[in-house]
Structures are given as structure tokens and as C-alpha cells.
Design a protein around this nucleic acid. Structure first.
Lengths: 354, 354
DNA sequence: TTGAAAGCGCTAACAC
DNA sequence: GTGTTAGCGCTTTCAA
């Protein structure tokens, strides 16, 4: 008796025509009350509204997107939602998108450059109003070229590529860029450490080829150079931006007998791992070793001692990304924005006492 | 000279027809190579592919969704992406969705029941394959009724409502439910505390009317009752699931001079705040006060001392939600799943020594 | 103020 | 194998 239906099949969603029939008007009239931007007699409108309610009607967003060409969607492409840094940017994106009457699509790439490209392609199919890509860029020619290609491709379908926290692709390329002063933040933090008397500062978590890493390290180096110092290459160790990598790297530093009085971790997550390793290694923080992080995510206040770090205005990055992309015609000159960063002093750093 | 164009306007995205023209075939042939499930002569296919590449063609997902009725999208509705608990479920959802060839839409509600309903409505417009709602439910008749309405409404358009971490709406209502053993986890944790000798255990962060809270508290109470004990109502304090609330509540408990040897925080976030307040109040953890949390999010390992907590399989909740909803025809009997929880012992609890 | 008709880009019968 | 035709549900001229 019961008819088997495909699980995905639109069983019997009502359409404008159903509503029209029930209200005794034409489909166009229904469409007009739907849009609201067109005069419809009050009585007619009421009848249509009533019919809609009775049929529990909802418009089909796809049909609507097909006719008009905007689909009212913003795409957010990120390595991993689970990272608090990205999650906070996501919040900004989502909130601004929602304020602008847009839906937000979430796509994750797990740090795989190939997936970034695949995802951007998918968003092109979806005709998203904007495609927001977050996180450091790979300083790799082929990768950059493909992003450039996508910038143009998206532009061609009326969409917009937005790069958050990564450098511009180049002049004349149709993309919105929202950066933060990455190098400046690292410079300020390193200066803080240096001026507190630290001279042997380990930099934990360099990722060669990643723009974010390059900029942070460059601030680190510049601060040294300003005092006529050179960072000891042995104290710069490579690894991904994760807690466990921070832990392992710090253990290794200790095991290798490297001498340092401070650690500048590439991110707060890395710092959390470093702190654990240091504690296990019997070092007191900040008495024996000062520790600084980068990002200022909530965990910075939960680790013990609370972490000195560089604040990055995550939510505002997300909001700005959406705002600039959607209003690019009104704001043609601010399509490259650089937000400020600043050092947040907490308990994990202090003046070196010899 | 430069022609002003609407920012959203589809400038000149190429269509199947453009491709067809260039390849010297018909639109259907192009569609066939697009789909891949239909025989096309190798030479023709090659020509079509070439034309696509040359025109930088991408299908219009909306046109496709309009014809067939599935739009290959899964919606994820959550209070706040920024909460690690939700973020980890989101990761599970996103990964499984991606494995099943679905895109993932993210919607946040900021704990506002009205927004939940609005968002579900929007997803109905989008014809999402599944709408996954995460987080505790409000035990409020009107709210439940509306969710029930949506369950039916989504079902009618071939979509599926999925409730994660909240109780079923009732029998016969077309919704998938993926829960975790919330009450059991609280029971186990309380039993752990009780059997460690603690008798005065504060429960911090009750939220009346929220199902999650009710279940946890019920496990807490049941464990007491099993030993013929009754929790002291003065030690059960109300507040939202956040770090700052945990902090304030714990300070208040201290200020009021309440006596307790253990704190069971409603969530790990709350626990993080409690730990800070306790430390500032001069209490040593776990020597003076044992602290336990719930959820087992990463912060549990970053607080000091590392937090004893109840593990909730967040990612698996997300994956299961997608899997069950999408394969509901093959798995009609497992549309109500309850995943297990377990106590994770770390350093913030220990046997009471008197 | 309303209706009829065309078409958005694609897929799926149905022919040939 | 491939082309023709007819919609999917909606918006939008163009008439009335």
C-alpha cells in the first residue's frame, strides 16, 4: 500500500502554482506578494498569504537563484573549524553574512592545497556571492597561479574571492584581501622579549613555505636586527601549528640541551604544548623560561600561567571580509585592508633576572 | 567607457549551450558528459571536455538542483561555532557530509530559540538534504511543537530533521536523533567523586529548562540517591555554559562561605572558569577542592591541573547525524542512536583526605 | 492591479 | 550515440 519513494525525492512540496490555484490568482501574483516589491491589492495579498499558510508553502531557493543570478550565499573555506582561531573568524563571517541576508557555507580543507582548489570550484558552481579563504597561503608558484585563476573565474560569474590573513595575489587581480599586521605583531612581541633582557629566544613552529609563518619569523628577525642581534638558527625549529607539535618540539629542545630563556611560539596552540613540555621538564614559567604565543585565542587565558600573546582581531577579520566583498562597488578603494595587532601581556613572560 | 555592472550580476558565465555550440554538439550531449553516467563517444566527449576547459565552464548548481530535486547540501544549525564542543561536532558533520558528496551550510542561532526556527525555515527553502540541529533543547511546549511542525515540513520536501544531543520529539515524528548518554556520564562522574570520599559536591552551571542540563543534573542526583544521599540544594547553582559564568559562580560560592570539597561543573568551559576562581581564592586543586567537567574538549588538557571530565564523542555525533539522515531508507531502525560517554581521569580530582 | 508567456541552466524522456 | 523536446519553480517583461 505504502508507496516507496526515493529518500531525496521532493514528495509534494507546494509550488507557487499550487498557491495560486488555491488563492484563485495567477502564479505571477503569488510571486509578487513573495517579492513584496510590487503593488498587489490588499485583499488579493491576504488571500495569497492565507493560501501559503494553509499549504505550508516555502519558496524554492534554487528556482529563485536560477532566475535572478544571486544566490545569497557566502562561502567560508578553512583548514579546520576546530581550530579556535578559525572558529572565531568563522563567527565573524557568519554574523556579518547573516546581517547582510546571506547564508554561510562552510568548507574545510585540512590543510590540503588541492582541496582548497576543489572547494573553490564547488563554490563557483554554487554561485556564492563571495568565497572567503582563510589562513596562510602556500608560497608556491603553481598554487598562486591557480588562486589567481579562480579570482578571475569567480569574478566572471559575479562572485568574489576574499583572502583573509594572507597576502594579496598581486595588483589588478580581482580579489578582496583582509590581512592583519602579522609581521608587526611578531616584531612587537620579540621586542618585548628582547627588552626584557632575553637574548636566547627559541622560535617554535616555523613552517617553511607558509606565508603566515614567514611573516611572523620576519618580525622576529627584524626585532633582533634592530638591536644588532642575530637569532640563533639552532633555536628556530620547524613544525605545524598544533599543540602536540609544540609539545614535541619543546621536549626536543630540552633533550638537545639547547639554551634559551624564552620561547616565542608560532601560535597559542603551539604555546600550550610548549608550556606542558617545559613544565614536565622541570622549568618554571616565567621564572626559568618566558613563553609567548600568537593569536590570542581563549586557551591563552586557560593555560597556566596565562599566556602573553599577540592579539589578532579574529571576528573583525571575518566581518570585514564579508562586508568588503559584498559592498565592493561602494568601497572600491578598501579592497585591501590591514587590521592592527597588539601584544597582550599576561603571566607567562617577565623580565629576565640573571 | 567602463560599464557599471551590478555586483551580483552573472556577467557571462558560460552555459551548457555555449559549450555545446563550441563543441559542435547539442546541450544534452554536454549534459551527458557532465553526468558521466551515460554513454558518449570518446571523441565527442573529448571535444566537449576541451570546450569546457576553454570556456572555463562550471555547472550551475542551482539549475541542477532545480531539475533533480536534491541539492546535495546538509545544514548544520548551532548556537555558536566558537564553542569547541560544537566545533568538534561540526567537524564530524563536515567530514561526513563531504564524504557523502554533500556541501555543508553553517547557521548560528546564539541560543535564541526564535532564530532556530527561522534558520530551519531557511533550510527548507534551500531544500537541504538534512537539517542538523545541535545542542540542548528548550523544554518548552511551544518550542517543541514548532520543532515537530518542522520535522513534518522538512519530511514533506524530502528533507530530514536531525536532533543531536537532545531528546526525541516523540514517537512517529519524522526526525533522526543522535544522542549521547548524558545522564549516564554525569552519573558515572558523580559516582567517581562520591566514591573518592567527597560528600559535599557543588554542581555549577544548572540551566533550568534546558534538556542537557536536566539530564546531567539527573545523573548527579541519581548517583547521590544510590548511596542514600541527597545533594544539598545550596550547592547547586544556576548559570549558562560559559567560562565567565563558571568563574563568577565559583567566586560567589566562595564568597558565600559554602562548604564543598568538590565541584562538578556543567561543562569543561565552566570548569575552566571555576578553576581560575578557585585558584584566585587560594584553594589548591585537587588537594583542597576536586574539580570535574563535562564534554572533554581540548581545553580540558590545557587547564592546570588537567581536568577530569566526561568524554563525549563529538566528532562521531556529527558523523552519525549525517550518516543516519542520508541513509535513512537503508537504516530505518537506527534513527535513534545513543552513543556512550565515559569518565576520563586526569589531575583535577583525587581521593578526599580528611 | 493582474494575467499570460518567456526564460533562467540543466536533466531526462523520447525519438532518430 | 546523439539531437529534440519538455519541463523543474520562479521572476519578469509585456499586455490588458
Amino acid at each position: 500500500m505504502a508507496k516507496k519513494t526515493e529518500p531525496e525525492a521532493n514528495r509534494d512540496a507546494s509550488t507557487v502554482r499550487d498557491v495560486a490555484a488555491r488563492a484563485g490568482v495567477s502564479a505571477s501574483t503569488v510571486s509578487r506578494v513573495l517579492g513584496g516589491t510590487y503593488p498587489v491589492a490588499a485583499a488579493t495579498r491576504a488571500r495569497v498569504l492565507k493560501a501559503m499558510r494553509e499549504l505550508d508553502y516555502v519558496v524554492n531557493a534554487h528556482a529563485r537563484a536560477l532566475g535572478g543570478s544571486t544566490n545569497k550565499t557566502v562561502a567560508f573555506v578553512v583548514d579546520d573549524v576546530t581550530g579556535p582561531f578559525y572558529a572565531h573568524i568563522a563567527r565573524g563571517v557568519e554574523e556579518q553574512a547573516s546581517e547582510e541576508g546571506r547564508l554561510c557555507m562552510l568548507c574545510t580543507t585540512h590543510g590540503d592545497p588541492k582541496r582548497v582548489l576543489a572547494v573553490v570550484e564547488t563554490m563557483r558552481e554554487q554561485r556564492a556571492d563571495a568565497v572567503i579563504v582563510v589562513g596562510g597561503a602556500w608560497e608556491d608558484k603553481a598554487y598562486q597561479d591557480r588562486m589567481t585563476h579562480f579570482a578571475h573565474a569567480l569574478d566572471r560569474v559575479g562572485s568574489r574571492l576574499v583572502l583573509v590573513g594572507r597576502p594579496p595575489l598581486g595588483p589588478g587581480i580581482p580579489a578582496t584581501v583582509v590581512e592583519y599586521d602579522n609581521e608587526g605583531g611578531a616584531f612587537a612581541m620579540t621586542t618585548h622579549l628582547l627588552s626584557s633582557g632575553h637574548r636566547r629566544i627559541a622560535y617554535v613552529g616555523r613552517m617553511p613555505g607558509l606565508s603566515t609563518s614567514g611573516q611572523r619569523l620576519s618580525g622576529f628577525t627584524r626585532a633582533h636586527e634592530l638591536l644588532g642581534l642575530t637569532p640563533d638558527p639552532e633555536l628556530i625549529v620547524d613544525g605545524a601549528f598544533s599543540r602536540s607539535v609544540g609539545y614535541q618540539l619543546a621536549r626536543q629542545l630540552l633533550a638537545d640541551g639547547r639554551e634559551f630563556t624564552a620561547v616565542f611560539a608560532a601560535t597559542d596552540m603551539v604555546a600550550a604544548g610548549v608550556i606542558q613540555a617545559l613544565r614536565e621538564g622541570g622549568r618554571r614559567i616565567p621564572d626559568d623560561v618566558a613563553v609567548a604565543g600568537y593569536d590570542d585565542i581563549p586557551v591563552a587565558r586557560d593555560v597556566y600561567p596565562a599566556l602573553t600573546t599577540v592579539n589578532v582581531p579574529q571576528e573583525e577579520l571575518g566581518r570585514a571580509a564579508v562586508r568588503l566583498a559584498l559592498h565592493r562597488d561602494e568601497l572600491p578603494d578598501s579592497q585591501h585592508l590591514v587590521l592592527g595587532t597588539h601584544v597582550v601581556l599576561r603571566d607567562s613572560t617577565r623580565r629576565l633576572n640573571r
